[in-house]
Design a protein around this nucleic acid. Structure first.
Lengths: 146, 146
DNA sequence: TATTGTTATACTCTATAACTATA
DNA sequence: TATAGTTATAGAGTATAACAATA
């Protein structure tokens, strides 16, 4: 197998392991990946309408309705009336939702330390450069504009 | 943001972009990620019972029933009688299934070249070493034995 | 007339439990 | 009695289309 194929294999393995790890960590916090994604957007941008959430997450508005239903049911967010538009609702973190989002953020920082603190500084720089390289090429190949 | 957090951020970005890319490539081939996973196992190990598939994929036998239903419906596999055990079925690739699996394999090799052929050999080695490092630590942290 | 969110409907992935046919 | 696969049931994520309330 070529060095290139070995590298891609490792990347794909990492995707699987990281996904499993995230899924089970989030489950322990009472969240799914999709619901955590929504909570993450709220943390970054504050209370938002469902339309805005749908756009931010690149999913359908209908999908957001379901995710918000779940998060309301588990006490992470509430639907508040929009101050000026009576059609819209402002999805807002509860105290528990905010605390959980902060916990996820600090958990991520901790994971970053766990994975990379033991890596020599030039090695980490080389690794990050490799990731940038791959991300750029992947986005070129798929026409992804981010 | 620390260099460690930047590295993890890039990894997580890569997971998202790669997942989107795979999902849409597979959709063009008439497959979902889960069904492609099943087809991939068949390619590697030949015709298998649904029990064996469930074990290989770490999902429930009931889940395999659904995936096989879908793949039979779209003409990628067939259910053949087991030669000695009349309870069991041997899930077997059709000609189309085999061809598609080979196409996926060569597409992966091509992607590996696209992403890594332009990387200088020492950089690629460093990148791969970084991936190994992260995979090892992640598995240590999560108790994953693979 | 356009937009926001919901109801209606449908497909996929996933799981557990009960059941049938066979070992 | 144990095993292979299915039926029954359920929850989650995703989508489109039709509809109500509001802008």
């Amino acid at each position: 197998m070529s060095a290139e194929s070995i590298a891609l294999d490792r990347v794909l393995e990492l995707v699987v392991v990281l996904n499993d790890d995230m899924t089970s960590s989030l489950a322990r916090a009472g969240l799914t990946v999709a619901r955590a994604h929504l909570l993450w957007e709220l943390r970054r941008r504050g209370p938002m309408t469902q339309q805005a959430l749908a756009a931010a997450m690149s999913v359908s508005p209908r999908n957001v309705t379901g995710l918000v239903d779940g998060l309301v049911g588990s006490g992470f967010v509430t639907r508040e009336p929009h101050p000026t538009d009576r059609r819209a609702t402002l999805v807002t973190c509860t105290e528990r939702g905010s605390q959980t989002a902060e916990m996820l953020a600090s958990g991520q920082q901790e994971l970053a330390q766990t994975l990379f603190a033991s890596m020599a500084e030039p090695d980490l720089r080389c690794f990050t450069a490799g990731l940038d390289h791959v991300l750029r090429l992947l986005r070129d190949a798929t026409g992804d504009l981010r």
